[in-house]
Simulated assay, not measured.
Amino acid sequence: MRVEIWSDIACPWCYVGKARFEKALAAFPHRDEVEVVHRSFELDPGRAKDDIQPVITMLTRKYGMSEAQAEAGEDNLGAQAAAEGLPYRTRGRDHGSTFDMHRLLHFARERGRQTELLDLLYRANFAEERSVYDDERLVELAAAAGLDADAARRVLADPEAYADGVRADEREAAQLGATGVPFFVLDRAYGVSGAQPAEVFARALDQAWGERPRLKPVDGGSGAADGQDTRDGGDAGEVCGPDGCAVPQH
Results as ranks from 00 to 15, higher is better:
108 A>N: 06
4 E>L: 01
227 G>Q: 12
22 E>S: 04
140 E>V: 13
92 G>D: 14
53 Q>H: 05
227 G>E: 14
135 D>K: 11
159 P>L: 06
130 R>M: 08
214 R>W: 09
19 A>K: 12
135 D>E: 15
123 R>H: 06
35 E>A: 10
161 A>N: 07
2 R>D: 13
244 G>W: 07
1 M>F: 09
30 H>I: 03
4 E>D: 13
27 A>G: 05
63 Y>P: 02
236 A>K: 15
57 T>Q: 11
43 L>S: 07
150 D>Y: 00
226 D>I: 02
4 E>G: 00
7 S>W: 03
3 V>A: 00
207 Q>D: 09
189 A>P: 01
232 D>G: 08
38 H>R: 12
216 K>H: 15
198 A>G: 04
67 E>V: 10
159 P>K: 08
133 Y>N: 04
184 F>S: 01
154 R>K: 14
167 R>M: 12
140 E>L: 10
117 L>I: 01
152 A>D: 07
63 Y>H: 12
191 G>F: 01
23 K>L: 06
33 E>G: 12
124 A>G: 01
165 G>E: 13
63 Y>W: 09
107 F>G: 06
210 G>P: 03
23 K>H: 05
193 S>F: 06
151 A>C: 07
235 D>S: 08
226 D>T: 05
71 E>M: 08
215 L>V: 14
180 G>W: 07
4 E>R: 04
161 A>M: 11
221 G>H: 10
36 V>M: 01
140 E>S: 13
78 G>C: 06
25 L>K: 11
221 G>T: 06
233 G>E: 05
49 K>Q: 07
116 E>H: 04
92 G>P: 08
91 R>A: 13
25 L>A: 09
169 D>H: 08
42 E>G: 02
100 D>R: 12
28 F>V: 05
186 L>Y: 15
15 Y>S: 02
209 W>I: 03
144 A>I: 06
177 G>A: 09
227 G>C: 14
23 K>C: 00
6 W>L: 02
87 P>Y: 11
119 D>W: 00
244 G>P: 12
61 R>G: 13
110 E>M: 05
26 A>I: 02
44 D>I: 13
100 D>G: 01
25 L>S: 10
116 E>I: 07
154 R>A: 14
127 A>P: 00
128 E>K: 10
75 D>C: 00
37 V>N: 02
56 I>W: 00
87 P>I: 15
196 Q>S: 04
171 R>W: 09
45 P>F: 03
96 G>D: 03
170 E>S: 04
212 R>A: 14
6 W>D: 05
59 L>H: 10
230 T>D: 08
125 N>T: 14
94 D>R: 13
237 G>T: 10
109 R>P: 00
64 G>K: 09
45 P>S: 04
244 G>S: 11
250 H>N: 09
124 A>N: 05
18 K>Q: 09
172 E>A: 13
234 G>R: 11
53 Q>N: 04
213 P>I: 09
21 F>Y: 10
213 P>D: 14
190 Y>R: 06
